[in-house]
Nucleic acid binder design. Structure first.
Lengths: 210, 210
DNA sequence: CGCGAACGGAACGCAACCGTTCCGTCTCGA
DNA sequence: TCGAGACGGAACGGTTGCGTTCCGTTCGCG
């Protein structure tokens, strides 16, 4: 995706685009995104904040939208190592602690909802996020659940799809939507609940109410 | 809040503002919000879509932001009756079914994330949403949980705060963030999991892992 | 070493938007 | 009934933004 940016020279660049400038644009982009929102961002403001020339932007991307999608896609790629604490509860606590730390980044609760909102409108952005964020993260958590099944902590027919939403949903809801803090003790308690919940959601239609 | 809109006459309006026009503006506002996003909305586009004059807007609100906050606040007020099926599981299924129906509205998955993102940036909007959406909805679900405690379905020391996030989070995550469908059977299974989870999250620090 | 290209910066044309101010028409309320 | 005021519509000035183009300077690859 990054090789045919439509502006990239096809051959013989005597002087390549400088990473320092690209990094400055990226930083300014996310600061601006957090401050004024996706739709209110202006290229002028970004280059002003980055201390670069406007041409530096259009030397890299054909237009504002392409720049936004490319920068978001690049920033979204974050591979974390899969912890293995030996228990599902421990894995979940580890996972959610890391995640909540990342989501507590000062810009996170402004940038991420802004990107999510725009992804609902921009198909290309939505696709990029599904590939670079949703898919790898879900695969990682699915691995945690599989290990738990292997250890006998979970039934083999538990609904992984639903379980993944159960893990991610409350964290996102609390930290990104409600924008309330979540302390370590609550994360442990949340993991208590999740272990019980995931074990209870079987794929067959048995309703174990009451 | 609606009485001193800063443009409202204090006395003797010979001809009041027409509800038909206000409604047309509101409809156009949300359609436009869904289509282009919060920051890209323009008053010109809204009045064009609504088929009203621009002055009709500024006769009602002092500026665009005030209009947005007022219209969102008005639309956010939705009191639903509290179902009482006799069991926690039944109440949760009923609640989530209603909620998922509302969230499946064609504009919902574009409008709601847009509003959430903007609320992270606009303190006044955030406050309005907390008062008109968060507080009443959480009170309603808390009532459901209290009834369950009264019936002995839940321990009296379960963490209601966390439980509320556990109920709302997965639904929002799945329907608004991931924008995937959620069928009735999955809602029932989700309720299975939630009943187990809520019973498992005690306020004291006991970790009931494994 | 030298040329070509990226660099910061400034300016451009064009379009869009905000909020105001006019119209002429219609309609509710005193 | 009659007048104040809301109505749809159009235009205004001032500002901002996009994407392009042009500087003079700097720097890296051949």
């Amino acid at each position: 995706m990054g090789s045919d940016k439509a502006v990239r020279r096809t051959v013989a660049p005597r002087r390549p685009l400088q990473d320092r400038v690209t990094a400055a644009i990226s930083t300014a982009f996310f600061e601006e995104l957090a401050e004024v929102g996706y739709g209110q961002m202006s290229v002028d403001a970004i280059v002003r904040r980055a201390g670069v020339g406007k041409a530096a932007v259009y030397r890299r991307w054909p237009n504002k939208t392409a720049m936004a999608v490319a920068l978001i896609a690049k920033a979204a790629v974050t591979e974390q190592s899969v912890p293995d604490t030996g228990t599902l509860h421990g894995d979940l606590v580890m996972l959610m602690s890391h995640l909540s730390t990342a989501l507590r980044h000062p810009l996170a609760s402004r940038v991420i909802p802004a990107v999510v909102a725009e992804a609902g409108r921009d198909r290309k952005l939505e696709l990029v996020l599904r590939e670079t964020v949703e898919a790898p993260r879900r695969a990682r958590v699915a691995g945690i659940l599989q290990r738990a099944v292997g250890r006998g902590e979970l039934p083999s027919d538990c609904d992984v799809e639903l379980a993944l939403d159960l893990v991610a949903g409350p964290l996102y809801w609390r930290l990104m939507v409600r924008r309330r803090d979540l302390d370590a003790a609550s994360i442990v308690r949340l993991a208590d609940g999740l272990v019980a919940a995931i074990a209870a959601i079987r794929q067959d239609g048995s309703s174990g109410a009451s």
